[in-house]
């Protein structure tokens, strides 16, 4: 006689962070974005932050959909403009942690100007850039991070534009925390995200992440699992590596680690210091009052 045993299903640690009613998500099998969200949820848990006071802002694209799946106050904005939206949110509520979660095309092409200016101002935003090397939502076109020689929908004979070296660009613009990992490095990524959430100032993590449907397939790089093997084989942890030396190529070494961790006064601090110095007691330092 068969016996039914109730096997207790272990609770999913990250489920409270997700809008379960919206699952299944739209991401393809083998896509790395979900892995980064998992790491992010764990990082939030690690910080023991009051989740009511954490907001996620995304732009447009596959990674832009993250805002729609996290059970936080979340904003899915326009293409490239997650950072300026987040800037307004952060300046009106400096007590809230504002995380910008978006992709390489959104943050570095259409939104590139905002990215470098936010880094220059050192606005206290936490930027997570999932770099899948192409525009995935629109069908795999060349992006600002596409490595030379990679085949894309708009570079059928291989890309020939040089790609951005993201960590170098944001460091040069003024970011005070810069790291890079791949979706193979889930523990390290979680740690880095945890660290970033407690860092004051403009912070940036690049996460190299596979797009099996469009990038891997066109470039004959296999599926999601093959991507993990590729990342494992090619990655080299070099904390503190000069960012000028860590540009990505199609098949070359992937330098990962934390490259920049420095203290610079952030925008709000600079603003308050200046206004207090010039206006003394007349300066009202209440931040932006909420209306009504």
């Amino acid at each position: 006689m068969a016996t039914t045993i109730d096997v207790p299903v272990p609770g999913n640690l990250v489920e409270p962070f997700l809008r379960s009613e919206r699952i299944p998500h739209i991401w393809c099998p083998g896509c790395g974005i979900g892995t980064t969200v998992n790491c992010f949820a764990r990082a939030l848990l690690n910080t023991k932050k009051d989740l009511r006071k954490v907001a996620v802002v995304s732009g447009i694209g596959c990674t832009g959909r993250v805002a729609g799946y996290v059970k936080l106050d979340s904003f899915h904005t326009t293409h490239g403009r997650a950072i300026p939206f987040a800037t307004g949110l952060k300046l009106s509520r400096p007590d809230i942690d504002v995380v910008v979660y978006s992709g390489d095309g959104d943050l570095f092409a259409i939104g590139g100007n905002h990215l470098i200016h936010a880094a220059r101002r050192n606005i206290n935003l936490k930027v997570i850039c999932v770099n899948n090397l192409i525009y995935a939502m629109t069908g795999g076109q060349t992006g600002p991070a596409t490595p030379e020689d990679a085949i894309t929908a708009t570079a059928p004979f291989g890309a020939y534009e040089p790609a951005f070296n993201m960590p170098q660009l944001v460091e040069a613009a003024g970011a005070s925390y810069v790291a890079r990992w791949t979706t193979y490095h889930v523990k390290q990524l979680e740690r880095s995200m945890t660290e970033m959430l407690s860092h004051d100032g403009f912070s940036f993590i690049e996460v190299l992440s596979p797009c099996p449907t469009l990038y891997q397939r066109r470039n004959k790089m296999g599926d999601g699992l093959d991507a993990m093997k590729f990342y494992k084989e090619k990655s080299k942890v070099r904390h503190g590596a000069p960012t000028s030396e860590i540009g990505l190529t199609r098949d070359g070494e992937i330098v990962v680690g934390k490259f920049v961790d420095r203290q610079r006064p952030d925008y709000v601090e600079l603003m308050r210091r200046q206004l207090r110095e010039h206006l003394g007691e007349r300066f009202i330092n209440d931040g932006v009052p909420t209306c009504c």
Binding site: R81, P84, F85, L89, L91, T290
Partner: peptide, 14 residues
């Protein structure tokens, strides 16, 4: 940027 920064501030309560 200017035209969406203000919208972030509105959602922050301003």
């Amino acid at each position: 940027a200017a035209s969406i920064t203000l919208q972030g501030a509105v959602w922050g309560g301003a």
